[in-house]
Design a protein around this nucleic acid. Structure first.
Length: 279
DNA sequence: CAGGTCTCCTGCTAGC
DNA sequence: TGCTAGCAGGAGACCT
């Protein structure tokens, strides 16, 4: 599932594919459910003739900047982009093409989404930053400066487990279920610890390891545990994972058995020894 | 209002 | 080997 490093990897791949400067000749919507807030007819007609000027990212949200519009694309669980052709070995993707954008170069930009959870929003370029979903995104976990005071402020009024807070995109955008477990392991904080019980030192550790882990994951092209694949291919951060998907395996630090616990219906992995719950 | 749970969706896998 | 129930999860809707 694409989180910040994976989405950023995709962004780099699309830029490298010379998307910028291309004009949209035609748009083919295979799955109307992917397009939010605007009818698919308007979506298509608005896009035709527009030029790609830039590709931004905030959190897990990709933002294609066109002449008049911003096309926001969220991949959710299984969204993927390909240039021209879906690799023949990816059967699920071939079956789940959601959108095809025909470019002036003669190439196609293809969006696939096996679970159809993804979302496209088309909004005026001068207004999208004050509209949902963009305006609800907190500072980007990697690109933006995030101060300890800011997080402490967010956390002190909340009583939710830190693991849940890390997934809350309004606070920090870009962290998903895989990296949330990894960050808390490195910070040696129990995922169930309520945010208002975190010390300033613990918040510093969370911030530090968020930056370090996401940066490393980005350098390795993301994590391909279940189904992440970028136009570059698979990432390799899965080799670096310390706790995620390591239930019943020994902790690399202390050999204690890693536990999986569902927190707010999300699987969370941690070492009960390194990450003792201290209240 | 904060916080918890449900829902969307379908490919994959564990288990029979 | 073949079938099926259940799991996977981002984020918004919905409930308490």
């Amino acid at each position: 599932m694409p989180e910040l490093p994976e989405v950023e990897t995709i962004r780099h791949a699309l830029l490298k594919g010379n998307l910028i400067g291309q004009v949209i000749l035609q748009v083919e919507i295979k799955n109307k459910k992917l397009v939010k807030e605007i009818s698919s007819e308007n979506f298509t007609t608005s896009l035709i003739g527009q030029t790609f000027h830039n590709l931004e990212r905030k959190g897990k949200q990709l933002i294609f900047l066109l002449d008049k519009w911003a096309l926001l694309s969220h991949l959710r669980m299984t969204g993927k982009y390909f240039f021209d052709e879906v690799p023949v070995n990816l059967l699920a993707e071939k079956r789940s093409i959601g959108l095809i954008i025909y470019l002036s170069s003669g190439k196609k930009l293809i969006y696939c989404d096996a679970r159809c959870f993804g979302a496209f929003y088309l909004q005026p370029r001068d207004a999208f930053r004050v509209s949902v979903p963009y305006k609800n995104l907190g500072p980007d976990a990697l690109q933006e400066e995030i101060s300890v005071d800011y997080l402490k402020n967010c956390f002190q009024t909340l009583k939710i487990p830190i693991k849940v807070a890390l997934l809350e995109q309004k606070i920090i955008s870009g962290i998903g279920n895989i990296y949330a477990s990894e960050i808390l392991f490195m910070a040696k904080i129990n995922p169930l610890k309520p945010t208002n019980k975190l010390s300033r030192e613990e918040i510093e550790k969370v911030l530090y390891h968020t930056k370090v882990i996401l940066q490393k994951a980005l350098e390795l092209g993301g994590t391909s545990v279940v189904d992440f694949i970028s136009p570059f291919g698979k990432g390799s951060y899965q080799q670096e994972l310390k706790v995620y998907m390591r239930e019943n395996k020994p902790c690399y630090q202390c050999q204690t058995t890693i536990i999986m616990e569902r927190i707010n219906n999300r699987s969370s992995f941690f070492c009960p020894h390194c990450q003792k719950l201290e209240l």
